[in-house]
Design a protein around this nucleic acid. Structure first.
Ligand SMILES: [Mn+2]
Ligand SMILES: [Mn+2]
Ligand SMILES: [Mn+2]
Ligand SMILES: [Mn+2]
Lengths: 218, 218
DNA sequence: ACAAATTTTTAGTTTTGTCTAAAAATTATA
DNA sequence: TATAATTTTTAGACAAAACTAAAAATTTGT
């Protein structure tokens, strides 16, 4: 399994959650920041290896084998992110790029021992669940902040967009995992929101509110 | 700088210590476990990038730039080996293969923080010196065990062969870094030796004794 | 239903890194 | 110093992974 194949598998796995019928080639190409023709080539290679089912023009679906492998890569990614934040003084907006490399290191023992070293963490620095050795992961009960109504409140438990730009923006607003967030006002015109984060009151755009996950408490 | 280029650079760097005139293509190919034609191709590419000097049939020598890069890869390799042994319960014969992968991860911050996390170690689990951020490393004063005379004694400070097979053999003999070793007898016929390791007396072959480094104390 | 727009695939190149087989250069030997 | 042995390079192929341009299939709009 090459590095590139693993990255495609992971991308397709993530796309399948929103598109369970069959992932379109263009969606893969877009997420991988490559051209559709390249995605077609790769999808054929992965089909050859029975990691996914592929019928021309019909999109693709991962096989059990493909899903298993994708989850293993995701497990490694999230364990490494956790290590970087917990032990090497990285901030949550810096870890993704490095974990993109580390997730491809091949060693069963390494990842088993890393998990143990970290104390078998359940979630990564972005609130995403870490699969265990058998590929099982907790489903984190969460809602997108944008869907909450006035006076709803909850705890920030994750982000949809793990890009450095967005995470740095959240840092600037002093929003991080575990914060109590309450919707003070929803603006119908542009879907922006006024929210209270712990003690602080501030306004955020519709786009930002769609990328924040909340576990409701009321 | 690709993974393969880095591996070649490291190989050439190691060969240069024994062959300061110019490293033969065949020596590179042998160490890289590849064919001479592949080595020629790679050497040309590295010359193109000014990482080494190459004249057909004359062998190669790393440039300053090439040496700098090789030392950086070696620094990463040895820091990762140290991490695996110190924190992830790896034994010294298991770390090399994994470090071969980890040494190619690109992140200045990662390696700087890892060094700090480990407490700025000076040597790796095999006794090899770890270069600092500027590429400087301690020269460890050492002699090959095979060169010692009867009644000479010293401390085991390293191994020349870091293969799993050899290190496991040393484990079986209860020889590890820091052990006091004394030459009881040298057998002229086959150059084998009877040595005393701390309390234990045992016999080792010529080949084994050529792969153990000692810092003499008498 | 048919033309237009969009999506997807195919065909042909490119780069990296490998290989085999053959040619050329160097070194060893008689 | 010729000849033989060895080392090294060249030539030609191949696989992985990307690209551009063009063709084919599907979907959309009227
Ligand atoms: Mn990756
Ligand atoms: Mn994450
Ligand atoms: Mn390596
Ligand atoms: Mn080592």
């Amino acid at each position: 399994m090459t590095l590139s194949e693993e990255n495609y598998l992971k991308a397709i796995f993530n796309l399948e959650e929103q598109t369970p019928k069959g992932v379109p080639t263009n969606a893969i190409a877009e997420l991988m920041e490559t051209k559709a023709s390249s995605a077609t080539d790769m999808v054929k290679r992965l089909a050859e290896k029975e990691l996914l089912q592929y019928k021309p023009y019909q999109g693709t679906r991962l096989t059990k084998k493909g899903k298993n492998h994708a989850v293993k890569v995701i497990r490694k990614h999230r364990l490494w992110e956790t290590f970087l934040v917990e032990n090497l003084n990285f901030s949550w907006d810096e870890v993704h790029v490095v974990a993109e490399q580390l997730e491809h290191i091949q060693s069963e023992k390494l990842i088993h021992q890393l998990d143990k070293f970290l104390g078998y963490p359940k979630t990564d620095p972005h609130g995403d669940p870490i699969p265990d050795e058998d590929g099982n992961m907790e489903t984190i009960e969460k809602k997108v902040l944008a869907e909450l109504q006035q006076n709803d409140e909850g705890i920030c438990v994750g982000v949809d967009d793990s890009s450095s730009a967005f995470l740095k923006y959240l840092d600037k607003l002093n929003i991080s995992l575990g914060n109590k967030i309450k919707v003070i006002e929803k603006e119908a015109f542009d879907n922006s929101m006024v929210i209270q984060v712990d003690e602080n009151t501030l306004s955020i755009s519709s786009l930002a509110s769609k990328n924040i996950y909340i576990r409701k408490t009321s």
